[in-house]
Structures are given as structure tokens and as C-alpha cells.
Computed example of a mutant assay.
Amino acid sequence: MKKLIRAAFICAIYVVLTVLPPFYTLSYGPIQVRVAEALTVLPFIYPEAIWGLTLGCLLANLAGNIGIYDVIFGSLLTLLAGYLTSRAPRAWLAPLPPIFLNAFGVSAYLAFILKVPYWYSVAYIMLGESIACLAIGYPVLHFLMKRNRSHFSK
């Protein structure tokens, strides 16, 4: 039950940090810093976060203006990134799956939908993901691991 509640809480936080002002304007398009992506490091210590992040991303993308491609492919990329993050051998590697999968995967459909150059989209999404995952997410992960050192053995 505790894991289900944690996953639901992560889902809710992801949605709030994506769709509410002022986050909404930062969360969609070829130039974005989706602050909620900071949460994508959590599967490293909480595998149940994979499902919370995936559902949160799906709901947030339904509220966005990109359309069905973002709902389907963005959610699937989040699912895959969450799984890979949960399998990372070291904490410092946890931010890398969401950074790279979103940079190259999300850019593939955003470039098509928004008619922007693919590598332009890759560069900006990678920058935004790096800000969210490395500058915000990794310190949060480090804090949680330090706070609960006895629970985590990775």
C-alpha cells in the first residue's frame, strides 16, 4: 500500500509541476525545461516511481498542446527512462536515461509536429532535461539517499 501511495503522490506532483502556472509555459515545445522531470531520478531508489512518472507524464501530456504523439510516445519514453533509471548501477548515472531518451526521442516527434530542425530540438531538450535532472533531480536524489541511507544499498 505504501508503494502505491508513493507512486500516486509522484504522479500528482509530476502533473502539478507540469500543468500549473508558471510551469505550463516551460513544459511544452521545442525549448522546454519541464521541472517535473526532476522526479525522473526517483526510480533509482523507488521502483514504484516508474508507474507514477509514466501516468503523470501521460496526464500532463493530455493537458498539453502537442497532441496524441506526445501522449503516447512521451509516456512510453518516460516508462523506458524510469525502468533504465531503476537499473542504474550508481546514483550519478540515474539522470542519464531521461536526459538522453527525451533529448533524442521526444525531439523525433517534436521536430516533425512543430516543424523545427531535429538537432535544434535535441540540443534544447537535452539542455532542459539536464537542468531538471542534474541541477534539481540529482540533489533531491542525493538528499533522499542520505536521509534514508539504511534503506538503500545501491
Rank of each mutant, 00 (worst) to 15 (best):
V116H: 09
I45G: 08
T40M: 15
S86Q: 07
S121C: 15
H151E: 13
Y28G: 04
G82P: 03
P98K: 07
H142N: 14
L4R: 07
S27Q: 03
L134I: 15
N65I: 05
F100Y: 10
I13R: 01
L55C: 05
Y118Q: 06
P95C: 11
Y14W: 06
S27V: 08
Y124L: 07
N148L: 00
L4Q: 10
G74L: 09
L134W: 12
L93C: 08
T85A: 06
G64N: 07
V116Y: 04
L4K: 06
V106N: 04
I45A: 04
N148H: 14
Y28K: 03
H151C: 08
Y24K: 13
I10T: 05
C57R: 02
T78P: 01
R6C: 01
L127D: 03
S150R: 14
L39P: 01
R87Q: 13
S150C: 00
Y69K: 11
L80Y: 03
A103T: 09
V71F: 04
A38K: 07
Y109L: 10
I13G: 01
F44D: 04
F23G: 05
Y14M: 03
Y118L: 12
W119V: 12
A88P: 00
Y124T: 11
R87T: 03
N61A: 09
A8H: 11
F23S: 05
P22K: 07
R149M: 10
L134P: 12
L144G: 09
T54K: 01
I66F: 10
L134Y: 13
L101D: 11
P139E: 01
N148P: 02
A103I: 09
E48D: 13
F73W: 14
P95D: 13
L80E: 00
Y118V: 03
A36G: 03
K146T: 12
P95E: 11
R149E: 14
W92A: 13
P139N: 01
V106Q: 05
A94N: 08
V140G: 05
F143C: 10
V33N: 02
A12M: 03
P43I: 08
L101G: 10
L127M: 12
S150F: 02
I68L: 15
G64Y: 06
A91V: 07
F73T: 08
N102W: 12
L55V: 13
F152G: 07
W92L: 14
P139K: 00
L20R: 02
A94I: 11
K3Y: 12
T40L: 12
L17I: 02
I5N: 03
I72C: 08
P22T: 06
S86D: 05
Y24H: 11
Q32M: 08
K115G: 04
M126G: 15
Y24S: 04
P30Y: 14
I99V: 15
P89D: 08
N148V: 00
C11M: 15
L76D: 10
L62H: 06
F100D: 11
P30N: 10
G128P: 11
P47A: 02
H142E: 14
